[in-house]
Design a protein around this nucleic acid. Structure first.
Lengths: 337, 337
DNA sequence: GGCAGAAATGACAGCGCTGTCAATTTGCTC
DNA sequence: GAGCAAATTGACAGCGCTGTCATTTCTGCC
């Protein structure tokens, strides 16, 4: 039979309420009592019943991780974040639930509300691009549900984790500049994603700092997918003065650019340097391997969840933590021809 | 304030217990009453409190999806299964929780027990390679937790979903044979995964049926990773009589084979045909794109969860459903040189 | 040693449902 | 229309915890 809190109380010779206090790390328990109760819990392998705790205490010990399954980034990126979030939740004895929330198609507010009233999460972790949907953020604040973002965002009083995408993008373009490239193209990601904007801004910043005027033909719209990278590259390669280097806003599009280069008989990196962003496993498996920006996704998920849980448990308000990026210079970039 | 079952009961002019009966689709409620209660629920946007239901009814409405985060297959594969499982759970108003369970390192039984007593899932969905760990399956049965597998397994009285991997492997090797290949190599996956065994069996079957004696040098061990594919291929290419075609047990290893081909100056598919298994997104993004076997992962996750939920809700015992595979013939295979 | 105030502990109700079983209504048969 | 079994409905306790508030025990201080 299941060991209940009451059983532990009897074994430790205290009232159930005191065991509850120990369980929840509350104040006003002498160290001696706390020890005794802890020992009894241990000895009996006591496991509190989550539903009973939730019902009586009016909290669920549940964190929901939201992602957009419509135009989400690479699934490996999400999987890594998920792993990190899960690790943090486990450490704090919270459960985690993942929830897709399609942002295209209007009624996401209704679906979000349903999620909240169906599952009662104590907090929510937002992943890109959901982090960029202002109406949802507004709704989150209205419903008074604490949340943390794994996000390129860095403004406002948000808690979670971020990376300086603009500086990373600038750094990778500077790498191309150092290799002697001047005609450097950029393939933009989905327009309304924050990530796209910051990566573009970093590209522009680097080009401007190098004294290169912006050539509109060198900046083409993509959509974060392989196919969109192929199409964007075809436009670039059809130009009279084609670029010698392409910085695509993510690895999938960069892969598309490399594919298109093959079509046009351009050798990477001899004729064309290509770089991406994200450091997906794919980027290492290409030939040549892709120069890209690595972000510590797993760690970011973990940090975001920790900030959220810290705030939930009243340990301060939660921060917006910035993590470093790493430039992964690999075979797809070389000196300008 | 929250709408409770009692409120619905008052509105529909019945007892709380009757509302509960309607909520749980129980028998012995007249159609008229059922209608009335349903209408009241709808009108008040009633959402049962999961913890209260769980506590009183002694079930959690929770399905746990287990995966091995040690040597798991491609994360996209898992992500797709997860999506399918989630879809089925949502449809039946169950929650889903994903749980990594590292199989290397012995104490997975203890960690599994902790998972059960911490979260009380009503059922469990197993993904490869967890499906192959007999001790865990034994423990599942002992603890009386219903489970379904997404699995290459096809023997025994298991419920879930399966694909005929052996026949698929045979089919892809037959495709190579039809192209005129005779020296066909196979790169095996992690030895104790069921998937590896069946894919190898399919390879052997096809070769034997074509009257080709098995050449031990043509069968090399891999580990489902890109790197292991590279190494395996190097061994094959170093042979005096190198293969004209390689069938790798998954796409990641096939990608490694293609990489190694580049190192050796072998053109794919002119000098070497390569094929894989899984149809990961990666396989489409290579150049040339990879010939491979597509399995409907998302659908498989959904079916497994549906079988499990059906059994949980007493609609029969649950089946082992077999889904079809699709051979994806793409640019990486061509006539033998 | 006695007293006030703070700290520790406990009693008890109740969170929102469902299981059990009793009470009531319905549908038949004669 | 009485009598009986089956179907429907309801009363009530209780799932395992925590919130509230009352009670007891411990401090320090005069």
């Amino acid at each position: 039979m299941r060991v209940r809190l009451e059983d532990v109380a009897r074994a430790a010779n205290v009232s159930p309420k005191t065991v509850s206090r120990v369980l929840n790390d509350e104040a006003n328990v002498t160290d001696a009592t706390r020890q005794r109760v802890r020992a009894a819990m241990e000895a009996m392998d006591y496991r509190p019943h989550p539903s009973a705790r939730s019902l009586a205490g009016n909290r669920s010990f549940l964190v929901a991780m939201l992602y957009d399954n419509n135009d989400n980034p690479a699934s490996t990126y999400l999987a890594e974040i998920q792993d990190g979030v899960l690790e943090a939740c486990d450490a704090h004895r919270y459960s985690m639930m993942v929830r897709p929330l399609r942002m295209r198609g209007g009624d996401f507010i209704r679906r979000f509300d349903a999620l909240i009233s169906d599952h009662h999460p104590d907090g929510v972790v937002l992943t890109p691009p959901i982090t960029d949907y202002a109406p949802l953020l507004k709704r989150l604040r209205e419903s008074n549900v604490p949340y943390a973002s794994v996000s390129p965002q860095r403004r406002g009083k948000v808690i979670g984790v971020t990376m300086d995408e603009q500086r990373a993008a600038r750094a990778i373009v500077e790498h191309l500049l150092e290799l002697g490239h001047r005609r450097i193209a950029h393939v933009i990601g989905i327009a309304d994603h924050g990530a796209s904007r910051w990566r573009l801004a970093g590209y522009r910043e680097a080009m401007a700092a190098a004294g290169l005027p912006e050539d509109p033909a060198m900046v083409v719209q993509g959509a974060f997918t392989f196919g969109s990278g192929v199409e964007a590259a075809r436009k670039l390669f059809a130009l009279a003065k084609r670029p010698t280097a392409v910085f695509a806003a993510n690895d999938d599009m960069a892969t598309g650019v490399m594919w298109a280069a093959g079509e046009y008989g351009l050798k990477v990196p001899q004729d064309l340097s290509v770089c991406g962003f994200d450091d997906t496993p794919l980027s290492r498996q290409l030939w040549p391997a892709l120069t890209t920006v690595q972000q510590p996704s797993r760690e970011m998920g973990k940090i975001a969840a920790e900030q959220l849980l810290g705030a939930l448990r009243g340990h301060g308000a939660g921060q917006l933590v910035q993590v470093p990026f790493v430039l992964q210079i690999r075979g797809s970039t070389a000196a300008a021809p």
